[in-house]
Each structure stands twice: as structure tokens, then as C-alpha cells.
């Protein structure tokens, strides 16, 4: 019996992976570190409000964070650019193969990383193996009003298109897949393809400086693809061969 590797998606998939479908470009020159993306993402994706104690202990659950670094000792401090860090939607993600339960998988339809909350058993191996440290774990039942009565009033603002996660589940940025689905559904009902700029992710939508651009990276004429070809473009930890879908435009 001969095995058709293309049929098994082994060869074809890897070649395809290198390209990807959805992509994001973050211009670090434009980012002001205002955290609007962080807030917008939390609203859009039902990200729990982690209390002070847990957040102070490194358990904040934001899917996007604004990293800031400085050089030098105290009074002579030189700030470097702000660096929004989110799931890089790697083409060859280190987080995926290590999950024993197939809870984090690669969507072959959308070419992004998926976290299937209901399949997650909470071994946290994926988070360990993520070189970007962008996965967040539900350490407690942050969104259960039986456990936290103060959350009851917040429950009305949950996004119905996104699952409300419970304790013991890993989660991460999904490139706002609910918006992707919505746009695709709308386009399909109107009998057309999704157009560039028709929709965007919550973070890109909220960014006042337009530092975040989202779109079809495999369409060469789309805005995100054009920006990704910029000479300033760089990928994070490229040496690991993870094929990130998020491109950063360096300062300069």
C-alpha cells in the first residue's frame, strides 16, 4: 500500500503552513502602549477579570499584553518601544503536538491555532512549551457567579459568540475567530468572498494609532500582506522555526 503524503496533509500542509491564511502586522513605531487593545480583547473574548492578588502573582489572563522594556539603571533610563505580544498563530506551533488530548490543534480551514476549551484537561504542557508565553490558564472559576457573586452584573456583557471558560482550562488568542466566522457566514449568504478590511480583530479595531493590521496574509494585494513585505518586518524568535503569522515592524 502506498501512502499519499498529500492526502495525509503531511507534505502539502507544511508547504501551505509557511504561507498561512490570516495574518497580523504590528507596527512598533506606532504603538503608544495605551493598552486599548488589551481592554478591547478582554471585552470581545470574555476574558475574566482576575483579582489583584492573582494578577500580581503572574496570573493575569490577557490574550494580548503590552510588553515594555528599558535600558540602563534608574535615572538614566531609556525606554524601548512597546511590544504588544499575543499568540503568534505559529504555522508549526510547539504548543500543539504536546497536548495529549488534542485540545490545541491547528485549524486546517483557517490556518490558525485553535484552543478547544471543552477538550482541555489542563495539563498546561502547551503553555510551558510556548516560546512566546502567550497562553493563559484559568486558575480559578473566575467567571462563575456562584463562586464569585460580584461577577453577576458583569455577566450581562459577555459576548454570546465566545465560550465562557471555567476553571482548569487553557486559553489564548484566537484571532477573533468568531468574527472570522461571522464575516465568512455573511459573505457566503451573499454569495461572495470575504473582502479585505471587511472585518478586523478587536485589538486592531480598538487601536487608536492603527498600529495593528489584520487580514488575509495569503492575498498579496491585501494591506496586511503589503505591510508584511516591509523592510522593517521581523518575526519573534524566528530561529525556533515556528513560522509565526504575526509580523512586527521594527522601529526605524
Amino acid at each position: 500500500m502506498t501512502v499519499d503524503l498529500n492526502k495525509l496533509h503531511a507534505v502539502g500542509a507544511i508547504a501551505e503552513e509557511a504561507e498561512g491564511k490570516w495574518g497580523m502586522v504590528i507596527d512598533m513605531d506606532l504603538c503608544t502602549g495605551c493598552q486599548a487593545c488589551v481592554a478591547a480583547c478582554a471585552m470581545e473574548n470574555n476574558i475574566p477579570y482576575v483579582e489583584e492578588v492573582d494578577a500580581g502573582y503572574g496570573r493575569s489572563m490577557h490574550w494580548i499584553r503590552t510588553e515594555r522594556f528599558w535600558e540602563g539603571e534608574y535615572p538614566e533610563v531609556k525606554m524601548s518601544a512597546y511590544q504588544p505580544m499575543l499568540c503568534q498563530q505559529c504555522g508549526k506551533a510547539p504548543c500543539e503536538p504536546v497536548c495529549p488530548a488534542f485540545a490545541t490543534v491547528h485549524s486546517q480551514a483557517e490556518q490558525i491555532n485553535l484552543q478547544v476549551y471543552n477538550r482541555c484537561v489542563g495539563t498546561r504542557y502547551c503553555a510551558n512549551n510556548c516560546p512566546y508565553q502567550v497562553r493563559s490558564f484559568n486558575w480559578r472559576d473566575y467567571q462563575d457567579s456562584r463562586v464569585r457573586p460580584e461577577i453577576t452584573i458583569l455577566a450581562n456583557q459577555f459576548n454570546p459568540d465566545v465560550t465562557v471558560r471555567r476553571r482548569g482550562v487553557m486559553e489564548k488568542c484566537t484571532f477573533c475567530i468568531q468574527r472570522i466566522h461571522k464575516a465568512q457566514d455573511k459573505a457566503k449568504s451573499e454569495g461572495r468572498e470575504v473582502e479585505d478590511g471587511e472585518f478586523t480583530t478587536a485589538c486592531a479595531q480598538a487601536c487608536p494609532a492603527n498600529a495593528i493590521t489584520f487580514g488575509r496574509i495569503d492575498h498579496p494585494e491585501s494591506l496586511v500582506a503589503q505591510l508584511a513585505r516591509s523592510p522593517r518586518a521581523a518575526h519573534h524568535l524566528e530561529e525556533l522555526g515556528t513560522l509565526p503569522r504575526v509580523t512586527y515592524l521594527k522601529e526605524g
Binding site: G58, R59, A127, F137, N138, W139, G168
Partner: peptide, 15 residues
């Protein structure tokens, strides 16, 4: 019942 928050594991040290 409470979740793993009662343990000391946190962002970089997931294990």
C-alpha cells in the same frame, strides 16, 4: 473545587 489557583503555579512556572 476551587481550581488550581490555590496552588502556587503561575505564568512561567506552569508546572
Amino acid at each position: 473545587l476551587e481550581g488550581l489557583g490555590v496552588a502556587g503555579v503561575n505564568r512561567p512556572s506552569y508546572w
